[in-house]
Structures are given as C-alpha cells and as structure tokens.
Simulated assay, not measured.
Amino acid sequence: MREHYRDFLIRNWEKGDRTRAAAVISYVLSEYGLGWEPNDADRDVLQVEEFYLATGGEFWVIEHQSQIVGTGAYYPINRGEKAVEIRKMYLLPSVRGIGLGKYLLQQLEAAIANRGFQQIWIETASILVEAVKLYESHGYQPETGVETARCDRVYVKYLD
C-alpha cells in the first residue's frame, strides 16, 4: 500500500514504525479515557509481524510531514465466512474532520475486497463517537459478541 490523500501518505508499516505507531494509538486511547493494553488488546501493535503480516493481514500507517498521525489495519479472523477484522484505526486529533478517516476506511475495504474476503468485522467503544458514526454511515450493522474488554460495540459489513 502506498496511497496519497491530500498531503498525507498512507503506506505499509515498517519495523521502524513500531514505537511511533504505538504512541499514536496510546495517545488516542488516553484522549478518550481508555487504557493502553500492551499485554492484551494492544499486543498486536507491538507484534505486527505475527498478528498481521504472517496471517495475511495488513497494517498501514499514515504520515504527514514525516510524522505518523494515524494507523489502520486488518487481519483474517475465524468469525463468519471469509472474514476479517478491521483494527487499530486511529487518527490524531489534529488530522480529524478532513475526510481522512473516511478515505482510510474506504481503502481498507477495497484492499479487503480485492483479497476475496466477504465479511468485515469491527469492534469499538461507544465513547469513540466519531468512529461509531463513521462505521454506521458506511453500512456496518450492529452485531453481538464483543471480544475485547474495552469495547462495547461490534459491527459487521457483508461485501458483495
């Protein structure tokens, strides 16, 4: 992945991004009063090779002026038929409200569809109001079976 949105670069994660990507996610979680969980829900950010690259998923970072300002990722899951879960979709406050999140979601969906997956699952927290609105406005349907402790919502979207 190497895509531009305005003056932002969306690209594949590299080893040198590990600490900076983790810092973005940790910051956004703390902004909403949610905890950074390096031994649990956020272990995948510190072990991208194992959780994403080795399983057929992808982990992307968003750069602006050589700084990482956001992340987005997905990996295959055993839930439903040919399913993936979109994970770690976070943007720093300074880059929200300009359509970047919407564009990132569309790019993730396109990559997922191109790989032949049929279902996209997303877990989130009600407190992440902007994320909830984004998913609901893009055809994600509420489901049951939240698996992540800090989340209280799960959505699914079926691809044609």
Rank of each mutant, 00 (worst) to 15 (best):
L29I: 05
F8C: 05
D40E: 14
I86W: 00
G16K: 14
R150W: 04
T148F: 06
A41G: 12
R43I: 10
E143F: 00
R43T: 12
E37F: 11
K88E: 08
L29Y: 11
E81Q: 14
E49Y: 08
F117L: 13
L104P: 02
A83C: 14
D40V: 01
G99T: 02
A113R: 15
R18C: 12
L92F: 09
V84N: 00
R2S: 12
W13C: 04
P142D: 09
E49K: 09
G16I: 08
A22D: 09
F59R: 01
A21Y: 00
W36F: 15
Y135A: 02
L9V: 12
I120N: 00
L46G: 10
V95N: 06
L159E: 00
P142Y: 06
T55K: 12
L92N: 07
I77R: 03
Y158A: 13
C151P: 11
I10D: 08
I77C: 10
L92E: 10
N78V: 08
T144L: 11
Q118R: 15
S94Y: 03
E58L: 15
Y155K: 05
P93V: 07
C151D: 12
V132E: 13
R96W: 07
L105Q: 07
I86A: 07
D17K: 07
I122H: 02
D7A: 05
L104V: 04
R18D: 04
E109G: 14
V45E: 04
R43W: 06
V45H: 00
F51K: 05
E130R: 10
R18M: 15
M89V: 14
Q106N: 12
Y103L: 03
G56D: 13
E85R: 06
I127E: 09
M89I: 13
D42H: 15
I112C: 00
L105N: 09
V146F: 02
N78R: 03
N39F: 13
V146C: 06
G116C: 12
I127N: 09
N114M: 12
F117G: 08
E49Q: 14
D42E: 13
R43H: 11
I122F: 05
R6Q: 13
D44I: 07
G72Q: 01
G70W: 08
